[in-house]
């Protein structure tokens, strides 16, 4: 019973992470298109897209947050495995669990602190210069994504069997 609940959680997290990554990728693609539109606009029509640089900054931050969980689930973070190449699987498993633990802790810390900073950003009307886009929306995305990272980390900690290692 416990196993099947964990499976559901695992599948759910995988789906969420993947949709986030896709959404982030689409944002980057849109930013590229906006930039090109802005270039065409200012070259041929004397009018660029208003605030294109700000849109890129805000969009980039959101996209990167959305990328984070998928990177973790796909073991995208670089590790040095040269010095531990000859360790026993059990040792390796222990070290990897330590890595998952740190990741979970770090993600939770970011998520928690960003809630506070985001609220403050809203209270102080933190916004971009030209379009006056409120910045606290970026914090919202960041908090959600780091929370998903935390859950992914917990899930890994609780059910990664000995023998399954990072690449």
């Amino acid at each position: 019973m416990k196993l099947s609940i964990m499976n559901v959680v695992e599948v759910g997290l995988k789906r969420v992470s993947m949709s986030f990554a896709l959404l982030g990728g689409l944002i980057m693609l849109c930013l590229a298109i906006i930039t090109v539109a802005s270039i065409i606009g200012r070259t041929f029509f004397g009018q660029s897209v208003e605030g294109d640089y700000e849109l890129t900054e805000v969009g980039l931050a959101m996209a990167v947050f959305l990328f984070l969980p998928e990177c973790y689930l796909r073991k995208g973070h670089i590790i040095v495995d040269l010095f531990t190449a000859h360790c026993r699987p059990k040792t390796l498993h222990l070290l990897d669990q330590l890595g998952h633990l740190i990741f979970t802790f770090v993600s939770a810390a970011f998520a928690y602190r960003m809630v506070l900073s985001g609220l403050e950003s809203r209270d102080y009307y933190e916004q971009t210069m030209i379009l006056e886009l409120p910045m606290w929306w970026v914090y919202v995305v960041g908090v959600i994504c780091f929370s998903v990272c935390t859950l992914c980390g917990l899930q890994r900690l609780m059910c990664s069997p000995v023998g399954e290692q990072n690449e």
Partner: peptide, 18 residues
Amino acid sequence: LGTAPVAKFSTYDLSVVP
């Protein structure tokens, strides 16, 4: 921890990475 992720990730020139 609260402010660095948004500050670093919203750096215009880093948009070339993705």
